[in-house]
Computed example of a mutant assay.
Amino acid sequence: MAESTGPARSADAPRTAPSASPRALSEVYDTALLDLDGVVYAGGEAIAHAVASLRVAREGGMRLAYVTNNAARTPETVAEHLTRLGVPAEPSEVVTSAQAVARLIAEHVPAGARVLCAGGEGLRVALRERGLSPVDSADDDPAAVVQGYGGPELPWGVLAEAAIAVNRGVPWFASNTDLTIPTGRGTAPGNGAAVEVVRIATGHTREPRVAGKPLPPMHRETILRTGASRPLVVGDRLDTDIEGAYAGGVDSLLVLTGVTDAARLLTARPDHRPTYVAADLRGLLAPQPEVVADGEGFRCGGWRAVAGHGGELALDGGGDDAVDGLRALCAAAWTAAGADGRARVSADRALGALGL
């Protein structure tokens, strides 16, 4: 594990505060495993500070890998998009859940098998990369069914074909089960919503094998393709990015530019608690401040947070960095969490003081 200071987690001792790092994270870790939607871009447009931060991190020697649960686009298309945004990227630096599920399917069906593909071009290309043959109908004698995000253009008939094949007993796979996906106009249904459609059509009697974050096949695919020895997972979702890092035994950085807001972070269960927290990707380029115990509370920067007996979080002090206050609040909330590891706190007033 790369160097860090502050409370760490283990199977017996859940993380009770964000960790500190005396050096910039880009100097401590050899590879950033970056989620895309909500971290690097939203709705196709770069998120503030993302492009400049990634350029500086790369110039300083950190390798960048783009790891996404979105199975719709090919690595070539993703790399072209990133390059247009100002972050030069090669297809080999992109790892998708389509690639992870294609490898998983190839391990369970004969070589060259037909696979009913309910997804976009990214999924079809990944299947062919593994020597599998995408087909469109349940009557094409598929050896497997796979679902992956296909964008708003995915025809309803494709889901019908998938459901028919699954009801016939064909093995069922899914690139991921994210129920939602962020867009530039707001939150939209993700592949998990399409998976639910097929599950409903089976009478809830079947379950797919899932490859994407936070499950092990995606972590395995990422490590195989990047060769990272000291990776840092960077994401915006607790239930995919951070949980996947936890399951893989690697450190993580949560950025607050996507799905997860400050209130949700405070109530995160133990396997959803990131190693580090930052407002955006500039967090890669800076040391991470220490959270220290201070009487019955916790201090970070100029902020001090306390969890009252009724679950009300109180915050006092001040400072230039609101995220320091959030880090202190995390320590107070996570330390006060119940036996199930879930913090039940009221934080509206405290977060209001931070502008979060």
Rank of each mutant, 00 (worst) to 15 (best):
T177S: 12
T177K: 03
L179G: 14
T180G: 03
T180A: 11
T180D: 08
I181T: 13
P182E: 07
T183H: 04
T183E: 02
R185D: 12
R185G: 05
G186C: 04
G186T: 02
T187C: 09
T187K: 11
T187P: 08
T187M: 14
T187E: 13
T187G: 04
T187Y: 05
A188N: 08
P189Q: 06
P189L: 10
G190K: 09
N191W: 00
N191A: 14
N191T: 03
G192E: 03
A193M: 09
A193P: 06
A193V: 07
A193S: 15
A194P: 01
A194L: 14
A194W: 06
A194E: 04
V195D: 08
E196D: 14
E196M: 13
E196F: 06
V197A: 15
V197D: 09
V197P: 10
V198W: 01
V198Q: 07
V198R: 05
V198A: 09
R199E: 04
R199Q: 09
I200P: 07
I200M: 15
I200L: 15
I200R: 15
A201Q: 13
A201G: 14
A201W: 04
A201C: 15
A201Y: 09
A201H: 10
A201V: 08
T202N: 11
T202S: 13
G203Q: 10
G203V: 04
H204L: 15
H204G: 14
H204W: 13
T205Y: 06
T205P: 02
T205M: 11
T205K: 15
R206V: 13
R206M: 11
R206K: 14
R206L: 04
R206P: 03
R206G: 01
E207F: 03
E207V: 12
E207K: 12
E207T: 13
E207M: 13
P208C: 12
P208K: 07
P208I: 06
R209D: 11
A211F: 00
A211N: 01
G212S: 06
G212I: 00
G212R: 01
G212F: 00
K213R: 13
K213Y: 07
K213T: 09
P214D: 08
P214I: 04
P214S: 10
P214L: 07
P214N: 09
P214Y: 02
L215G: 00
L215T: 10
L215S: 03
